[in-house]
Amino acid sequence: MKYKVLLFDVDDTLFDFGISEKKALNKTFVDFGLPTGLVDYEDSYKEISRVLWEELEQGILTLSELGVERFRKLFLAHKLEINADIFNSTYLSYLGTEIHMVSGAVDLCNTLADCRLAIITNGFTDVQKSRIKGSPLCDIFEHTIISEEAGFQKPARGIFDYAFSKLQIADKASVLMIGDSVTSDIQGGINYGIDTCWFNPHCKENNIGIKPTYEIRELTEIIKIVGNSKKSLTT
């Protein structure tokens, strides 16, 4: 077996964050008296959020700042008089209850019983722990490494130092980082000197020069990778 330790990203790798985000946003807008808020503001919110998450990865702002700033910018752009702090808190409460698995995630993790499995994710501690605890994968992972607790976010080396310390890993060659984000998961793994697997179910183009060790369309392809000593599976 080539890889003994598998580090999984959470959102859009094991959990379908798109569904969770949409449902949590809709409930929050309804609570704040905007029943059509999701339809009216979702596109704007996603663009604002995308930019802020990129800034988080670059170390420009903190996670707590991101949480409020995304809604502050949204409400400012659309001239809505809503308290961004309270809205964000409500949204995160709902998000922690929205548990939607990516197809094949549960079967895959149950199949990888011979490997050590851990999570390494950027996100809010309470939200991520709540979703994992309420999922079919609640007892699967040896450790759950969350950026808010670690004090670093992917792709920073610090979060991988934290994970390797928690897991007491000495051999980087035995570790595979699996995730959907080229700039976060794959770049982070490359920076740390471990092999990476890019989960790319929607066939996104990669034109930024970050090359994963493997690229897959379905999670079940990981089973073959784990048991294969060659790197010829890269697509």
Rank of each mutant, 00 (worst) to 15 (best):
I99Y: 02
C203H: 14
T125Y: 14
V106C: 07
K204I: 01
S181F: 04
Q187V: 00
W198S: 12
V102W: 03
I99F: 03
I159V: 15
E218V: 14
I159L: 08
D180E: 08
T183C: 01
S165L: 14
C138Y: 14
S165C: 12
I210W: 08
C203G: 02
I169S: 02
I99W: 01
P201M: 13
D139Y: 01
H100D: 08
C109D: 00
K129Q: 13
I190H: 02
R116T: 15
G123Y: 10
F141W: 09
T97H: 10
I140F: 08
A156V: 01
R131W: 09
A150W: 09
L117D: 03
T196N: 07
I186R: 02
R116A: 07
H100G: 03
D195N: 12
D195S: 11
E148V: 02
I186S: 10
V102L: 09
V175M: 11
K154W: 04
E148S: 07
I120Q: 06
M101N: 03
I99S: 02
G189W: 06
Q153H: 14
Q168N: 15
C197N: 10
G151E: 08
F199C: 05
F124T: 15
G151D: 07
F160K: 02
C115V: 13
I99K: 00
I169Y: 06
R131G: 02
L167K: 04
F141K: 01
A170L: 11
V175Y: 07
K129D: 11
I178G: 10
Y94G: 00
N110R: 14
M101Q: 02
I210Y: 04
P201K: 11
L95A: 10
K172L: 13
N206A: 07
A118I: 05
G188T: 01
Y94T: 10
D114F: 13
C197D: 10
I132P: 00
D185Y: 00
Y162G: 08
V127H: 05
E98F: 01
D161V: 11
K204M: 09
L95P: 12
A150K: 06
Y214C: 12
E142L: 02
D126R: 12
S181T: 04
Q128T: 06
I99H: 01
D107Y: 09
Q128M: 09
T144N: 09
I216C: 10
G158T: 15
W198D: 07
C197Q: 12
S165H: 15
G188W: 01
D139F: 06
S130A: 15
R157G: 00
E205G: 03
H202F: 13
I120G: 06
I159K: 04
E205I: 05
K211M: 11
P212D: 11
D114A: 15
N200P: 02
I146C: 11
I145P: 04
Q128R: 04
N200W: 01
N110H: 15
G151S: 12
A170P: 00
G188N: 06
